[in-house]
């Protein structure tokens, strides 16, 4: 394991610092996760400045709500991911955001139903070269679950594929990506 992985490892130590309201905790947490969380937020709000605002809000929320994190319900990263995604989605529902994004979002609204076959290309727009190495079906599933926060069931219904297939496709997609990312 490399140094980075070790940092992600050290979750319980980070959580202990955060619960003590030690600023070193939030600082380390930011260093470890801000890029990934920013990317998730950016995928949703599609605007650098807004995404940075949401990112700050996200870490403030992590700081103030850390006591409600329960490790038996999942990983810290998963918990933070949900906070980031929900804040980003909330922002896109605000009037100010809608006004500012009107022109840009027309395309996406037209193809609002994320799972339809026609919208595959639209939904994967913005995903980087890494993801584009995947087959469209896999790109779509990663986009829906990871960046849009769909549940397995929602993906299954949206794409009209069995739940088991959703699971194996996620697995396969991530294995493919691992190879790509390692290169």
């Amino acid at each position: 394991m490399n140094k980075d992985t070790n940092q992600y490892h050290d979750e319980s130590h980070l959580i202990a610092l955060l619960k003590k309201k030690d600023k070193a905790g939030i600082s380390a947490l930011y260093d470890n996760y801000s890029h990934a969380l920013f990317a998730i937020i950016h995928q949703v709000v599609d605007n650098q400045e807004i995404a940075e605002d949401v990112l700050q809000e996200c870490f403030v929320k992590i700081w103030t709500k850390i006591d409600s994190y329960d490790s038996s319900k999942g990983r810290l990263y998963t918990w933070m991911l949900n906070i980031a995604r929900n804040l980003a989605i909330d922002v896109t529902r605000s009037k100010a955001y809608k006004k500012g994004q009107k022109v840009q979002s027309i395309d996406k609204d037209v193809h609002g139903s994320a799972g339809s076959v026609d919208s595959i290309n639209v939904d994967t727009i913005g995903l980087s070269a890494v993801v584009s190495e995947l087959k469209p079906d896999y790109q779509l599933i990663i986009n829906l679950i990871y960046f849009k926060g769909y549940t397995q069931k929602e993906v299954s219904e949206e794409l009209e594929i069995p739940l088991g297939t959703v699971k194996t496709r996620v697995k396969t997609a991530l294995e493919k990506l691992r190879t790509v990312l390692s290169n």
Partner: peptide, 23 residues
């Protein structure tokens, strides 16, 4: 850990870093 690390790297590959002033 490995899966989480992959997912984090995957996300990071999707966008530039946030500007330093955010921290």
């Amino acid at each position: 850990m490995r899966i989480e690390s992959d997912l984090i790297r995957l996300a990071e590959s999707q966008s530039p870093k946030p500007s330093a002033k955010v921290k």
